[in-house]
Each structure stands twice: as C-alpha cells, then as structure tokens.
Amino acid sequence: MPRTSERGGPQTRARILEVANRLFLERGYEAVTVAEVAREAGVSSVTVFNHFARKEDLFLDRAADAADLLRAAVRDHAPGIDVLTSLQDMTFRLSDERAPLSGLSAHAIPFFRTVAGSPALIARARAIGSELQSALAEELTQDPAFDGDGGLLAAFFIAGYSAVLVETVSRRIDGEPDEAVAKDHRDRLGRLFTALRDGVVAR
C-alpha cells in the first residue's frame, strides 16, 4: 500500500484514528498491533506515536475533549451561575445530544464492549479518570467564585459520573430500550448533582 503524506497533521491523526477504531472493533484491542494500524493507515509506527502517546489512546481518544469540557464548565460559567450548576448543565447537554461521552451515542455499545474485553484499556480508562479528577480539582481551586473543597468535589463528581455512565452502558448492552435508559440516565445525573450540592458544596 502506498504511503500517504506523514505531515498531514489533523488529517493524518483522523485517518489513524479511523483505522485503529475499525480494527479494534473488528478484531479486539489486544489482537491488533500499532504496526498493523500504521500499515493500514499508510504511515509509519513512528508517525502513529507522534500523534498518540500510547496505543490505548488510539481507542480512548476523547480524554482531552473531556478535560476541555470540565475546564470550560469552571472557567466559562455565566455570572450568577455557580460551578456546580455549570457542570450539571454540561452533563445534561451531553445527555440530550447523546454525545459519545454520555454513553448514549449509537456507537457506545461496541465501544464499551471492546473496552471491557481489554485489561489494558480498562487500566487506561481508570488512569484517565484520575487525570480528569486532577484537572477539575485544579480548575476549581483557581476559581475565585468557588469557596468549597475543590479536591473533594472533583473526586465525588468524577466517581459519580463514572457510576452513571457504567450503569447506562451496561443497560444498553443488556438490550434495554434506549429511550428508557436515556431518561433514567438524566434522572440519575439529577440525583448526583443534588447529592453533590447537599453533601459536598453546602456548608
């Protein structure tokens, strides 16, 4: 297969991601090597690692998007809107849009089945959760409008959102109707934020 230009920037990255995701979903994460992804994408393995720090990031590629959403919820909330409400609005928006990070997208089931079948992806997902918690805690401590315990709120939020996400995906994998799962997903998010406001932020 002829090699494509390896200086394509975002286009090269997108091509690598498309190939990697297709191969991982078809054959399982553990059965595919980086060299195979590179060959199929028409680039070198070095180019793959220029775009992705580790193999796991070829599949769990939305960590940066999640971190950006958390930072924006803290930095960009409107005057008169507290941080917790901003975070809640962000999670509700993901739910309503059935975005990939909500677990409600059309591609969520095969994606999470692949993650569940790979110890390496499970470990990386847990590490990403820890990284997101640290990023949120850092933003909260720098927000002059927030006077609560940023580290504690970040820990509870990430753990709570992860619990809602896992339950949502598990129910969809089990074949429950999407509309019912989506409604319960949003309801559980509401209960999460009620608990956070009453149990973590309230003084």
Rank of each mutant, 00 (worst) to 15 (best):
T4R: 15
R7Q: 10
P10N: 09
R13V: 01
A14L: 11
I16P: 04
E18C: 06
E18F: 07
R22T: 13
R22V: 01
R27I: 06
G28T: 06
E30A: 14
V32W: 00
V32G: 03
A35V: 10
V37Q: 04
A38H: 11
E40W: 01
A41F: 05
A41I: 09
G42D: 09
G42C: 05
V46E: 13
V46F: 10
N50F: 02
F52R: 06
A53K: 14
R54G: 01
R62V: 00
A63W: 03
A63E: 13
A64E: 14
A66W: 03
A66I: 06
D68T: 13
R75T: 04
L84E: 08
L87D: 04
T91P: 03
R93P: 03
R93D: 10
L94F: 01
S95L: 03
E97I: 01
R98V: 00
R98E: 11
A99I: 02
L101I: 14
L104T: 00
S105P: 09
I109T: 06
T114Y: 00
V115K: 01
A116V: 08
P119S: 03
A123G: 08
R124V: 04
R124H: 12
I128D: 12
S130E: 13
L132M: 12
L136H: 10
A137I: 09
E138K: 11
E138D: 15
T141M: 10
P144V: 00
Y161R: 14
E167R: 15
R171N: 08
R171L: 10
R172K: 05
I173Q: 06
P177C: 06
E179A: 12
A182I: 04
K183T: 15
K183I: 13
D184A: 11
D184H: 04
D187V: 07
R191C: 07
L192Q: 08
F193I: 04
A195N: 10
A195V: 08
L196C: 08
A202I: 08
A202L: 15
